[in-house]
Each structure stands twice: as C-alpha cells, then as structure tokens.
Design a protein around this nucleic acid. Sequence first.
DNA 1: TGGGAATCGTTGAATATTCAATATTTTCCA
DNA 2: TGGAAAATATTGAATATTCAACGATTCCCA
Lengths: 145, 145
Amino acid sequence: MAKSPSKPITEHLAYLLAQANREINRQLDARFRKEGVPVEQWRILKVLSDGKGHSMGELAEAVLLNHPTLTKMVDRMVSDALVYRVQDADDRRKVLMFSSDRGKALTQRLNSLALSQEAFIAENYGDKATADLKRLLEGLIEKAN
Amino acid sequence: MAKSPSKPITEHLAYLLAQANREINRQLDARFRKEGVPVEQWRILKVLSDGKGHSMGELAEAVLLNHPTLTKMVDRMVSDALVYRVQDADDRRKVLMFSSDRGKALTQRLNSLALSQEAFIAENYGDKATADLKRLLEGLIEKAN
DNA sequence: TGGGAATCGTTGAATATTCAATATTTTCCA
DNA sequence: TGGAAAATATTGAATATTCAACGATTCCCA
C-alpha cells in the first residue's frame, strides 16, 4: 500500500504564521527604509516612549528579543544617540533604558509610517477581517502562555 | 497641549503576528529538539517529500528563506545525508534537490511531531478559532502578494 | 547566428544572532 | 549575619544570515 501523502506545508498554522509575519514585516521594513531603522528598533523606541525607564529584561520580553541580542542592538542605538542607559538606583543589577529627544522624534516619524501601513492593510484586507484576525491572534497568544 | 499617547505596540498587527509566530515556532522547535532539526529543515524536507526534485529558487520561495541562506542550510543537510543535489539536465543552471531515504524517514517522524502540535493547539484554542485563524491568515497572505 | 541581457545558484566578506560563561548585585534562609 | 543561590546584564566565541559580487548557463532579438 502506498504511503498516504501528508498535509502540505501551506496548511500548517506554523507555516501560515511565518509567511504572514514575514510579508507584513517586509512591508513595514520597506516603509522604515528611509529612516534606516529595523523594525526591532521601532519596537524598542515605542516601548520607551512612555518615558518611564525600562530594564533590559523587561524590554527584551516586550520586543521579542533575547537578552544578548537586545544588549547589542541597544549598543548600536546608544551609538546613534537614540537611547541611553541609567543604572537603577533601587536595584543596581538593573539598567534602565530611556529614549533621548532624538529617539523620541524618530519614534513619532516611525509611528506615523506604521499607522499608514495599518491603514493600508485595513483598506485592502477589510476592516472586519483585520479586527477578527487581531482578536484571534491575541487569543492564541494568551492560550500559548 | 500634551502629546496624545500613541497606540501601544501590542495592538499592532505586525507585532501580534511576530509574537504568535515566535511562540508557535518555539513550541514546534521544542518538539523537534530530540531530532536536532530546526523548523526550516522540516519545511525543506516536507516540500521535497513529493519526490519530484525542486530547484533551489523554488525551494527558497516555498520555505521562506533567501537564496544564500538556503544554499548554506542545504550544505549542512547534504553533510547530514538528508538531501542531495542533482544538476537539472534540461536547464543546467538549475540544481534539483531530492530527499534521501534517511531524509524521508526523518520527515515522517517530524510530520508526526508537527501534527501532534497542531492537535494540541486545536484542543486548547478551539477547533473553530484555529480554523478561522488559518482562513484569515490565508486571506491576508493572498492580499499581500 | 552572435552577443548582450537575464536567470540561477554559489561564494566570501560583513554583519547579526545565539550559546555558554562571567561579573555584579540582591535575596533568602540556616 | 554569613554565605549560598538567584537574578540581571554583558561579553566573547561559535554559528548563522545577509549583501554584493561572481561564474555558468540560457534567453532573446537585431
């Protein structure tokens, strides 16, 4: 008896997520191109835009990067004067990250590029579908943790 | 007037996709751990499991890897005797990739690990939600291309 | 039919990420 | 309270990815 063909890769949730993620990220990266900033740096800047001071661990969690990767990305951003480090006085193991004025200005320009992408997607893909997709993704993430 | 706070990062579609993708991929990777194979190699093996011979370009597209990255990953897989290269007789610029017997056996073990993950997700997250999510992702990908 | 342009895959150098080990500080409890 | 264990961030070496350039082959049309 012949071996039954297995489900094609394109029908796996993991693959669909990877594909969608890649495509949307590509489009966003293309918009960010003129600012010369990768998507991860936008996420960092955005989290820091509350002006509050976030530890590296907290940031790593929030921007989906592991610690050493974040450390090195932050090094680059410090060189570019977008963010700066302050040792936490209450717990001196920690480093608190802040956005500089230059970083804040960049954040606003990136935010508006990102919003325009979201608007573009909602327009082409449909408001309802977009909202449904977001809701389902939130649910999946919640269950997965 | 104070600047209005911008939408939090967690409400952006791009972020939700990245987060969900990361989490699902992590879980899949954990299951693949005992076989010592990254998710990308499973994708490659799965595409090759039709026994037909796929060019590098075709493969790169199918498994969401760019050409140089795929070349080097295939190099490793050839070393592990999972796949092999054959020059295309009809167009000698092309290289056709095939799965070895060893590769095919591994593919089956990985397929069953992947299926068990999908079953786990469907169970915890709900059959309907999973199906809806897949459908919406397919739609998004289609629009995006 | 000759030869420039396009396609396909690989390579090497530059860059980025990851893993394991480290230094520092804090926590906890015997 | 002393000191082992845990938490935090960084570093360096190993690994992986990306970018630009290349070599080989095929396509196309003047």
